[in-house]
């Protein structure tokens, strides 16, 4: 097995389409998925680098694993469902805290998925998009007005910067890092991943230059925002 040079982690509520996005990109298809258990990863060769992309489980039950998956990550993709406002709120409430363990110069992308389902979306319309529980499974017919606007994602991005105490000037612009995608039609999926790969390469190089990662990092740079939840809550 090849050793990855860098890590990208997909985070987001269950059913927003993380697994579907990854499969669309890696396998060029949109198969039926089952809700992810635990996590899974792909290894992607980008130029001369091996990048591991972790698909995490959105289910509450596995929430506790997130911090470990994010440890040392070079980029985090925060995924929500554009037709499901709550999924965006969850990113801030539940998932942002998990990224404290990520690399100090970790990149953040915010991705609104399933644009094919909403009225303004570029999708092919008609077909059933989601299934299973949650308001995201809107079923076959009428297209709904999009519940989350791109501006909302941009606002979240800026909040993240504040949370991380980063200066907007030092990081990619919000417009560059907020995407609206459809795993179903493939809309913006390649753009999302490949933009990120290109941005991650310099991060990898910087990490390398700094030598092997500090094994123990007891003082994460962000404020302690652990949300302890899960079975023991």
């Amino acid at each position: 097995m090849r050793k990855p040079d860098g890590k990208i982690v997909l985070l987001g509520d269950m059913n927003v389409g993380k697994t579907s996005l990854l499969q669309r990109y890696m396998e060029r298809r949109f198969p039926d998925t089952v809700s992810t258990v635990g996590g899974a990863f792909y290894l992607k060769q980008w130029r001369s680098y091996n990048i591991s992309i972790w698909d995490t489980a959105g289910r509450e039950q596995f929430h506790g694993l997130g911090s470990m998956y994010c440890r040392g990550a070079a980029a985090v993709i925060l995924t929500y469902d554009v037709n499901h406002a709550q999924s965006l709120l969850e990113l801030e409430d539940r998932f942002l805290g998990l990224t404290d363990t990520a690399s100090a110069d970790c990149l953040f992308a915010i991705v609104g998925n399933k644009v094919d389902l909403s009225e303004e979306g570029p999708g092919d319309g008609g077909q059933d998009g989601g299934h299973g529980p949650g308001p995201a499974g809107v079923g076959a017919a009428p297209r709904l007005p999009k519940q989350v606007q791109p501006e909302d994602a941009v606002a979240l991005y800026k909040k993240i910067l504040k949370y991380k105490m980063l200066d907007e000037k030092d990081v990619p612009a919000a417009e560059q890092m907020c995407f609206e995608t459809s795993a179903k039609t493939g809309h913006n999926v390649d753009l999302l991943f490949e933009t990120l790969f290109d941005m991650v390469v310099p991060v990898i190089l910087r990490q390398r230059a700094q030598g092997p990662p500090q094994t123990v990092d007891i003082a994460p740079c962000g404020p302690p925002a652990r949300t302890r939840s899960g079975c023991c809550a």
Binding site: P4, V37, G38, G39, A40, F41, R59, Q61, F62, G64, L65, M68, Y69, R71, G72, T101, P213, T215, V216, G230, C231
Partner: peptide, 17 residues
């Protein structure tokens, strides 16, 4: 959790699903 067998290295990261 959830009947998972999790892998972790001494660096605190997971290298296997």
């Amino acid at each position: 959790p959830g009947g998972l067998g999790m892998f972790a290295t001494v660096a605190g990261i997971s290298q296997r699903a």
